[in-house]
Simulated scan of single mutants.
Amino acid sequence: MKEEFFVSDSELIMRVKQKDNDALQQLFVRYKPVVNKIKAQYYVRNYDYQDWDQEAMIVCYEACCLYDFERNSQFGAFYKTKFTNRVRSLLRYELAKRREANRTAISYEYGNDIGIIMEKFTNDYKLPISEIYSQFLSNLSELELLSILVYLGKLSHQQACKIGRCDRLKLLQAKARCKRKLKDELF
Rank of each mutant, 00 (worst) to 15 (best):
R86A: 03
A101W: 04
L27W: 05
V7G: 04
L90G: 01
L171M: 08
V44K: 00
K183Y: 10
K181F: 09
D20P: 04
S10Q: 15
I58Y: 04
L146Q: 07
K179V: 08
N112E: 15
K154V: 15
C161G: 06
Q41W: 02
K183S: 11
F6E: 13
E70V: 09
Y133N: 03
R88F: 04
D113Q: 14
F187W: 04
N36S: 12
K120D: 03
Y133M: 11
L137H: 08
Q18P: 00
G115T: 05
E131I: 01
I163Q: 12
D68H: 08
E142Y: 10
E142I: 08
F28H: 04
L66Q: 15
S138K: 12
Y42C: 04
H157V: 09
E70N: 15
L171Y: 03
R99L: 10
D20N: 14
K126H: 12
E94C: 00
E185M: 14
D51P: 00
E4N: 13
N85T: 14
S73Y: 12
F28N: 00
E131H: 08
E94I: 00
Y61I: 03
S10G: 03
R165A: 13
V44R: 00
A105V: 15
S107G: 13
T81R: 11
C178E: 05
N85Y: 06
K175Q: 12
Q50F: 03
P33D: 09
I117M: 07
E142C: 02
D167C: 09
